[in-house]
């Protein structure tokens, strides 16, 4: 390295753009290798300008890169802070959604077989996915920051509903796409919809008193037992017929009403 260094006068003239190009080029080459001369230039840029640019750098560096689901939410107009709260949910993250897809895919492939059990397994599994997703989306175990959240002004009830709605929507969309893509397109491919709503809202109501994970497990297990018991002799889609659907609608309705009255229990 040369022993030559800039003096203040030269630094000022360089910073002000008053050096001729060749001399400036010389200075620039020297600057790359000399921190002493670089520091002479620091006072030549207004502090406020450097701070302003730094604030932008810091924000870009700190701000986490949103996951695919969060980006999707923002794209459809959800506020970025709401998207953040939703995006932190296990069951709205990629691994969970991928696992759900695989599970549904197998069920759908099974129902490609003409046996009645095939379609039945698809219709049975589809409502369990949102129940499981909701059960791990909030509460002491599902949300690591749950206890901190309880003492925060944000309504935990609202957060829970938002997450439940997001989980329900994503798993329903998945089941619908899969059903339409792989199964016959008559009414039966959507027959899981009301059971989904019923089981999910039931899980939410129970969660006002018990741990959401236990509630989800209990509801899912009950559902499985009922399906197996009613179809043991002769598999049929009776559970998903008109009377059954009316029943699911009733369960959904009652659960939602109860949920409204028990909303205080969530915060």
């Amino acid at each position: 390295m040369s022993t030559w260094h800039m003096d203040d006068g030269l630094a000022v003239r360089y910073a002000d753009g008053e050096l001729n190009p060749t001399l400036a080029a010389s200075v620039e080459a020297h600057l790359l290798a000399c921190d002493q001369c670089r520091s002479l230039l620091a006072p030549r840029v207004p502090r406020s300008r450097l701070d302003r640019v730094w604030a932008e750098v810091a924000d870009a560096v700190d701000t986490p890169a949103p996951g695919p689901f969060e980006r999707l939410l923002r794209a459809i107009g959800v506020h970025d802070h709401t998207a953040r709260l939703l995006g932190a949910t296990h069951s709205l993250r990629l691994p969970w959604i991928a696992a759900s897809t695989v599970a549904l895919l197998f069920a759908a492939l099974a129902s490609g077989e003409t046996t009645r059990w095939g379609l039945l397994s698809y219709l049975t599994l589809a409502p369990i996915l949102p129940v499981a997703g909701v059960a791990v989306a909030f509460g002491r175990d599902g949300d690591p920051a749950h206890e901190i959240g309880l003492a925060a002004p944000y309504s935990m009830f609202r957060l829970m509903l938002m997450r439940a709605a997001a989980v329900l929507t994503s798993s329903s969309a998945l089941a619908l796409v899969m059903g339409l893509g792989l199964l016959d397109d008559d009414w039966t491919v959507a027959a899981w919809l009301l059971p989904s709503l019923a089981l999910t809202s039931l899980t939410l109501v129970l969660s006002s008193r018990f741990d959401p994970r236990h509630c989800g497990a209990a509801v899912a297990a009950t559902w499985l037992v009922v399906v197996v018991a009613t179809n043991l002799r002769e598999p049929s889609l009776a559970m998903f017929g008109g009377a059954g659907q009316a029943g699911y609608l009733a369960i959904t309705f009652v659960s939602v009403v109860l949920l409204f009255f028990r909303r205080k229990e969530f915060s």
């Binding site: 360089y14 910073a15 753009g17 400036a24 620039e28 600057l31 921190d35 670089r38 520091s39 230039l41 620091a42 030549r44 840029v45 300008r49 450097l50 640019v53 730094w54 750098v57 810091a58 560096v61 700190d62």
Partner: peptide, 22 residues
Amino acid sequence: DRRALEVLYARHAPWLVIRLTR
């Protein structure tokens, strides 16, 4: 290390601003 970036910025942003301005 965020702090390291901050220090790096303080050292290198000024000359970079000036050189790019040229």
